[in-house]
Amino acid sequence: MPKISCPLSTTSDPVMDFFSKVQILRSENRPYAIATVIEVLGSASARTSSKAIFDQDGVNLLGWVGGGCAERFIGEEAVQAIREGKTRIVLADLDDEIFGLGVACGGKMRVFIDPILPAEVMMLPQTDQFHNEIRSLGGFYGWNIQEDLKLDPPQSIEDLLLLMATTAADKRDVTAKSLREIKKVPATFKTVNSQPYLKEVTIVGRTRITEALARHFTLLNYSVRVVGPDLKSENYPTNVKCHCLEDSYEHIDFHKGEVVVIAGHTAQDPLLVEKALNQKASHVAMIGSLKRSHEVLNHLKLMNQEVTLPLYIPAGLDLNAKNPDEIALSVISEVILEKRKSE
């Protein structure tokens, strides 16, 4: 009697398989798109949360979002999403046999398509002194770092960070100027840094951005304090002082001369900015949108005024930052430049 091997794998886990495939594609630096069914109306071949991975030719590499015509349609949309580098939400009409997809399931499916492009190539100088920092930061930024022997190596960590910021800005064809200038914040900024910059920073918030900021300031040997609710100290470098807030932010005090970065994205932000300025911080930056900058200016009664305070809203340089670590790079680069101007 021949043995029949069991067709079912005892270790199969579709979720693990899915993310393993994503990891493999990432390591191969290939573009792909993840299609996720986010809504089903009536009858459809897939369910909400069904996912599939498509390559740049629209071929389904793993997963299920429907068969036949639905899969072909979503594959074609995935090709476009990858080509444009933009997400899209598409409606798969599985009801209209003429102008829908031609299958008569009797329903519709809304599908979110998210293209994942290969890591951006960034050319940086070869340097033994900062090799580890470049590789580590490049990993956080999601860059594909290539060495250019023609470039002069940076002389300091500050120079390295500024170089990485300008490299990103050049690659993306953006200005690397201050965001408060680019976004046309309605005030005239003539920053007069009356306080010398101390190598101390207080970061307010509890998000991935605060973690990234803490990493970057630690690289520059700043004394770093993070203040926010539910902070997990294991997410921060060991020398960072984590001050877990039990209640409101009004009990936070700032030190004269320190750098303050408000990254809380809360209603308290304008009050914290005001307090940091009153307590003579050397540099007060708030991460946020143009609209949030308006809120701060209104709160401080500085709308359309000449501002001579060390106020940086929105914080950072124009790098077209794509993730929390690039946002941190943008913010710390602005701090470095302003500190150098004040010296």
């Binding site: 349609f73 074609e76 102008f99």
Partner: peptide, 12 residues
């Protein structure tokens, strides 16, 4: 002509 907006039906 109306299929031009729906690339997946062109093959049909």
């Amino acid at each position: 002509e109306h299929l031009r907006v729906n690339p997946s039906r062109k093959a049909c």
